[in-house]
């Protein structure tokens, strides 16, 4: 079901980089690519992403599993675009009433689908190799995030798998007390909503108790916190971010040189 452990070889050269650097690199890479609507730059970017995958210790199969919903969305993009493209220039390929497919539409669709993939993959790769504790530590130590908020969020994140089990428990408790939906879809929906609500209530109660336990151990006592796990942000981490910027920029440049570049705005 829901798994919160990182799922990549932690020793891989890029997986070992500072989590903040990894997230920053992914964001830089993604946002540079958001700037264009052509198919060439994202295609190049995807090639780069697939090429660096082994350096992150992520297997291709894993990426495919995490990215498949994206492919499904790509189909949606295609359908929507065929119906609602702003730009219908180019040769007419198919004209069936409201559906007017031109070469221009197809190029745009290809561009959008590739862009979607190219923009999402860096984040998927980076988060698959990042441990939540390390991320929180690095956010505090290297990105000047307020410690109380980062650690509080981290403590709450630990509850994710417990919430999954809780869902099961709540459902069983209702059944044991004679509450079920049978085959009626409306009753099913109501039971779903009431279970989700109970889950939220339970989560808040847990959170309240957790906060008390944290206070009991001196969280927020007013003394400056020390750090047990040092996160370093070194030259290699800067290099990772710079590398991401350079590679994404290179993909754009190639696209500009080939004359395919289409800026997002303008």
């Amino acid at each position: 079901m829901i798994d919160i452990e990182p799922i990549a070889a932690p020793g891989a050269p890029l997986a070992r980089r500072n989590p903040v650097a990894k997230v920053a690199a992914a964001l830089v890479f993604s946002f540079v690519l958001l700037a264009t609507l052509d198919p060439v730059a994202p295609a190049l970017a995807i090639a780069v992403e697939l090429a660096v995958l082994p350096l992150f210790g992520v297997r291709y199969r894993l990426l495919a599993r995490r990215a498949w919903p994206l492919l499904a969305s790509a189909v949606g993009v295609l359908v929507t675009l065929v119906l609602f493209a702003a730009d219908r220039s180019g040769r007419v390929l198919l004209d069936a009433g409201p559906v007017l497919v031109t070469s221009g539409v197809l190029v745009t669709a290809l561009g959008l689908v590739l862009r979607l993939l190219a923009v999402a993959l860096p984040g998927i790769i980076v988060f698959a190799t990042t441990d939540a504790t390390d991320l929180a530590d690095a956010l505090v130590q290297n990105a000047k995030a307020p410690a109380r908020f980062a650690i509080g969020a981290l403590a709450a994140f630990r509850l994710v798998p417990l919430l999954g089990q809780e869902w099961q428990m709540i459902s069983m408790a209702r059944r044991a007390r004679g509450v079920d939906a049978g085959r009626n879809p409306v009753a099913k929906l109501r039971l779903f909503v009431s279970t989700a609500f109970a889950l939220l209530v339970g989560a808040i109660r847990r959170g309240t108790r957790l906060a008390v336990a944290m206070d009991a151990r001196g969280f927020d006592a007013g003394v400056p916190r020390s750090v047990a796990r040092r996160q370093r942000f070194g030259a290699a981490d800067w290099a990772l971010i710079a590398g991401a910027a350079v590679l994404a920029g290179a993909a754009l440049t190639v696209s500009v040189l080939l004359g395919t570049f289409r800026p997002l705005i303008g």
Partner: peptide
Amino acid sequence: WRTIDIVVAAVIAVAFGVVFWAWG
């Protein structure tokens, strides 16, 4: 913000992070 504010806010977010996962 008290500790309980931070943790409960985060717990709400986490619960919805899970909901988002299903909502997707």
